[in-house]
């Protein structure tokens, strides 16, 4: 245990933790949305994210960018950002829908037991990550420096970079937009109705299948944005990038209260910060172990999470 390591680096650890946590939060939304509506852990969501991290790399590759390119000027940078985000969103959204249609819908039609869904989800996850693994020869792929991390301001000995600000802001904006969509729009009302009681919702004229597809799509979109942020922050991606971060994201969703959108944001930020503190205290190799231990502790003492489980049951 290295208490001085934690205390000396308290500020920087908090700031990195928040940026990390914002990515985790966006990722966690996919788990929370699907769980809220279907009571299903979408195990393949981590691979939806993984495909996003590669999709924006592919899009940037079309512009001739690779990890050795020089950082672009402001104009092209904005263009690249938009293109990268759009590519990741399209691919992740499509992947999430494909998983729903191929792996889940046939089972739902036949009223399969809940374990069957988890098993097909694992199959889908394994398939996608392994295909990516073989295609990339299990090497990591570098990310072109679209945005160079530059310090913007300093508090005490803590510097905050433009990239960290961008990540946290983007997560907050997306969170807000999704929250408004679920709680304010007509489609969102359908989602909440199905989450509350699928059969009654269907009787009231809500198209259940369409709501389920919508939920997968929304989760995929958020994962796509998280994937681009991840690429920019970490600088490399690998075929197993989705898996470990996926566990973190799921932990965050449970921590905040699975099925609860605002809970996912809170859980994500909190988990990011706590993980970094744990890394400061015990060394960075224990970062993921910390989130597992935290997950077990939450499940034992407060299985409904900090803000409680709700997508339809209360106004979350």
């Amino acid at each position: 245990m290295d208490f001085s390591g934690l205390i000396d680096n308290f500020g920087p650890l908090t700031v990195t933790g928040l940026a990390q946590g914002a990515i985790i939060a966006l990722f966690a939304l996919g788990y929370t949305l699907v769980y809220g509506v279907l009571r299903l852990i979408n195990f393949a969501h981590s691979e939806v994210f993984l495909l996003g991290t590669y999709a924006c790399l592919f899009a940037w590759g079309l512009f001739g960018l690779d990890q050795n390119s020089a950082a672009p000027a402001v104009g092209p940078m904005l263009l690249y950002m938009v293109v990268g985000l759009v590519a990741a969103i399209i691919v992740s959204g499509a992947a999430a829908l494909t998983v729903e249609f191929v792996a889940y819908r046939p089972l739902r039609r036949r009223n399969a037991p809940p374990l069957a869904f988890l098993i097909t989800a694992i199959g889908a996850s394994l398939f996608i990550s392994e295909v990516v693994g073989v295609a990339t020869h299990r090497n990591q792929t570098g990310v072109p420096p679209i945005i160079q991390a530059r310090p913007v301001f300093t508090i005490g000995d803590t510097t905050v970079t433009n990239l960290q600000i961008l990540i946290v802001l983007l997560a907050l904006v997306m969170m807000f937009a999704l929250d408004r969509f679920i709680n304010g729009s007509r489609l969102g009302r359908g989602v909440r109705a199905v989450a509350q009681n699928p059969d009654s919702a269907a009787l009231m004229g809500v198209n259940k299948s369409r709501v389920i597809a919508l939920v997968f799509l929304l989760g995929g979109l958020m994962a796509g944005i998280a994937a681009v942020m991840y690429d920019l922050k970490i600088g490399v991606t690998r075929y197993d990038a989705g898996f470990l971060l996926g566990i973190d994201a799921f932990t965050a969703a449970v921590l905040g209260g699975i099925g609860n959108l605002r809970g996912a944001l809170l859980g994500g930020l909190l988990l990011g910060v706590l993980q970094n503190y744990a890394a400061g205290l015990f060394g960075s190799q224990w970062l993921h172990a910390a989130s597992f231990v935290l997950l077990v502790v939450i499940l034992l003492f407060r299985p409904t999470g900090l803000l409680g489980e709700s997508l339809g049951r209360a106004r979350a």
Binding site: A103, I119, L126
Partner: peptide, 12 residues
């Protein structure tokens, strides 16, 4: 990857 696909196919 083959086993991943096989799991889905068999479950379905």
């Amino acid at each position: 990857a083959i086993f991943g696909a096989a799991i889905i196919l068999i479950m379905v």
